[in-house]
Write a protein that binds this DNA or RNA. Structure first.
Lengths: 212, 212
DNA sequence: ACATCTATGTTGCCACTGTCAACATAGATG
DNA sequence: CATCTATGTTGACAGTGGCAACATAGATGT
């Protein structure tokens, strides 16, 4: 039988590629991304410290695999947000923001890995690039629908999507990195913070029919 | 004579504390923040590999010092933006956004260090904490002035400041980390991107006197 | 069935890192 | 002049990523 093209089941071990990726994800969130060691992953899986090199060229390559999974999860969250409020782009966008922030808070280290400039975003890791672009495309789609239905103001879709993304992304990273001043990080719960940001941001995105 | 309380001039070397910090800043931008090594800094300054330990408890402690400098630079930029457009909070905010992004692009690795969750943001490094809070205070002041003059909508100052900060911060980190899709990162120059984001964000912040 | 090949996993090693302990020195203090 | 303390050096340690050499087991060809 031909070996399965995509799934690449390894021979000796059950599915080392998958197990390594999985264990690495778990270990990642137990500490900082910079403190994640290939050797610790190998030990956790129960293989020698160089076994991962048969499945990942590099430590960086393993990290890229984790990050790609993260982007896929993000895309899925965006899709869910859209599905939850059909034909209501404004609410879709707000819900997407909530899920973006929530996901970031659930796996902060993975978020740092995805957006912390640790990995090259060029074509070094095509799968990573593809997953990242797919997530942005999901966001763009919301904007596009909103423009089509007249809910959002007209203008370059990429730029409007960037604006929405920036606001939510900025909030997420500020929360994850802990850079918010005490007043904000202690006083209010995160959902309220997110609502505040997305609401004001939506205000700027909406089509204002009244002349100012 | 009493030794100078704050400046802490070292004895043997000219001013090792300062020289280490300075050289570390330079080396930082030559590579990734995670690839910055204490030993490389020591070698660049021309001292033994443990000399830095007489001036910084840790590697982390040195990084905290660099980050604090970064926050101070950020505060200065905000202050300049305010000074450049007196009595015009909206333009102040836009200018502050430009400077925020520009600074991030000039020293991307320092930005990652400041906001990448590498350093603890609790009271481990009071100077760092103070510098960070000062920067946020500068931003808050702009919002406060804008509310007072009726340019911005009313509401919790902290939350409005957070919104503005999030948008600009998100854009900066997306630029620095290279996570923007090709269309955006190649097609347009960064100043245009920043303008697009700040303009829409300002739209949401402004006081709309017309009922929608 | 047998030999061979290739994908997988292991052992041992290397340079490098952060950090500690022991030692050295020089300027300040008595 | 003796001593103290702040500063700087040397040498060691464990941990890291990664390479080379070796081992093995399933697949393949005859």
């Amino acid at each position: 039988m031909n070996k399965q093209a995509a799934s690449e089941k390894p021979y000796h071990h059950g599915d080392l590629h998958e197990k390594i990726l999985c264990s690495a994800c778990e270990l990642l969130e137990e500490n900082t991304v910079s403190s994640l060691s290939l050797r610790a992953v190998a030990k956790k899986v129960g293989v020698s410290h160089t076994a991962p090199y048969r499945h990942f060229k590099d430590k960086e390559s393993l990290l890229a695999g984790i990050a790609a999974v993260g982007f896929d999860r993000l895309s899925a969250q965006l899709a869910d947000a859209v599905a939850a409020f059909p034909d209501d782009p404004a609410t879709q966008l707000q819900e997407a923001g909530h899920r973006y922030v929530q996901l970031a808070l659930e796996c902060p280290q993975c978020t740092q890995l995805m957006f912390g400039g640790i990995l090259p975003c060029d074509d070094t890791y095509p799968a990573l690039r593809a997953s990242g672009d797919a997530a942005f495309d999901g966001l763009k789609q919301i904007i596009e629908d909103g423009q089509a239905s007249g809910a959002f103001k007209t203008g370059d879709i990429e730029l409007l999507a960037l604006t929405a993304w920036s606001a939510i992304h900025g909030l997420s990273l500020l929360l994850v990195s802990g850079n918010l001043p005490e007043i904000l990080s202690s006083m209010i719960d995160n959902r309220a913070l997110t609502s505040a940001v997305t609401t004001t941001m939506l205000e700027g995105l909406k089509a204002h029919h009244s002349d100012i």
